[in-house]
Design a protein around this nucleic acid. Structure first.
Lengths: 124, 124
DNA sequence: CAGCATCCTGCGTGATACTG
DNA sequence: CAGTATCACGCAGGATGCTG
């Protein structure tokens, strides 16, 4: 490996990761897509389940996230002809390779965040 | 699948995770602390290496992150008496259990983000 | 159905200055 | 040394309304 390179220039992987998944829905979108391609509306619906049934996610935001994920190379957009509009999103190879990471995150989260229990959670 | 618990109420683990590590430095602080306790100044210095030698992290921000991590139960603050002020931060059990997750993130990041290479990285 | 255009707001982040 | 206080700003993210 001879990583040797004492040049830690560039954003470190962690920072890059943070940037890549910045946004509330990106991780969940990726997770949702792990089961196969999904349409825009399906993703949107899927995002509503699991969280507090708070406000619906706005198209503007979802669109943004989707686009960002596409540009990050995690997902791929497939536009079927037209009328009526049908667009599917699916994980790219890169995206699929990322799934285990999300899985690790979820697993840890379920174990340590699912039951805040006796911890100081005065935040809310 | 016996998913059993049909109660996805509450923020899903992913969202909770996102919230917990929101902030540019939290993940890196945790990572930095994996090697043992560190003092405030050391953490600060450590944060400067690895990223572009951009601006120095402001005390306000670092303080905030540290406090948030403490309240999340990931790290622990140990204040040695006083004069001259000496404070050490160290990972809690919970924090240590989180390290592997960060490791997974870093590993993935190094593999897929370290060398954007031929991908569309027009962003910057 | 799958978006885009415009407006508005909160908060995360940085700069600067001060303290025990 | 290890913070806190105050000011300021950019941008993520929600609300609405429109379109191909």
């Amino acid at each position: 490996m001879a990583k040797a390179r004492a040049a830690p220039l560039r954003t470190c992987p962690v920072a890059a990761f943070q940037k890549m998944i910045s946004g509330k829905y990106k991780l969940r979108i990726v997770w949702d897509l792990k089961d196969g391609p999904r349409r825009y509306g399906e993703i949107r619906s899927g995002l509503l389940r699991g969280t507090a049934g708070s406000s619906e996610i706005t198209p503007r935001v979802l669109s943004r996230e989707l686009k960002a994920l596409t540009e990050s190379g995690l997902i791929d957009r497939k536009d079927f002809g037209e009328v009526p509009p049908k667009v599917e999103y699916r994980l790219t190879r890169k995206g699929k390779s990322f799934v285990p990471v999300v899985a690790a995150i979820r697993e840890w989260g379920e174990r340590h965040l699912g039951e805040p229990a006796a911890l100081a959670d005065a935040a809310e």
